[in-house]
């Protein structure tokens, strides 16, 4: 299996954890993996993106425009921002959440109303209210893992592989809640 995944959102939303779990699950399945992360300036509420590449002998850690099989977006505007990175007919898993950027807050720009139309015109879209799922799992901070649970349906890893990757990446105290958030995201009621 070869897959290139873009994980995007707003600095501070916990995108790094999602990419690390994805990286671990792929490695445990015997794939080569590269992740490219963003640290520093843009983490202060700016637009952030992490690339996850898995397959056989990955060279570049970056995903190019038109190259991603999937976008996992933590916010609707950010999903649309990275759409040029998606392959034709790729998959977008998007958290139905809006965080207004500063140009909108100051009135210099408007938050677009037609984001879902733009997404569905270009991609197969799974929209998830990950916030609600995380709350249901008892931890608002596991939005990132709930969203990953929704994305997991597009991968062929086993439930055991996912669970092990989550265990090895999240703080020990939060394992149970994160496993639950993942399960809800994955479709468990």
């Amino acid at each position: 299996m070869k897959k290139d995944i873009i994980i995007c959102g707003v600095g501070g939303q916990g995108t790094l954890l999602t990419s690390r779990i994805l990286g671990h699950v792929a490695m445990s399945a015997g794939l080569d993996v590269k992740l490219s992360e963003v640290h520093g300036m843009s983490q202060r509420g700016g637009s952030v993106v992490t690339y996850v590449r898995m397959g056989d002998g990955i060279a570049s850690p970056l995903i190019e425009k038109g190259g991603a099989d999937m976008i996992i977006a933590f916010e609707e505007l950010e999903a649309v921002r990275y759409l040029p990175y998606l392959k034709k007919n790729g998959h977008v898993v998007v958290n139905t959440n809006r965080i207004l950027p500063m140009p909108v807050i100051t009135g210099a720009a408007a938050y677009p109303e037609n984001l879902m139309e733009i997404l569905t015109a270009a991609a197969e879209v799974t929209a998830v209210d990950a916030q609600a799922l995380a709350e249901k799992a008892g931890s608002v901070r596991s939005v990132n893992v709930a969203l990953l649970g929704a994305a997991a349906r597009q991968f062929s890893f086993t439930p055991q592989q996912w669970q092990e990757a989550i265990r090895s990446c999240v703080p020990a105290k939060t394992v149970e809640k994160n496993l639950l958030a993942f399960a809800y995201g994955n479709g468990e009621k």
Binding site: M41, Q43, G46, K65, V80, L83, P112
Partner: peptide, 12 residues
């Protein structure tokens, strides 16, 4: 690539 949309920037 898919065409970029004209959307507001999100600076830090």
């Amino acid at each position: 690539p898919n065409a970029p949309s004209d959307i507001p920037a999100r600076p830090p």
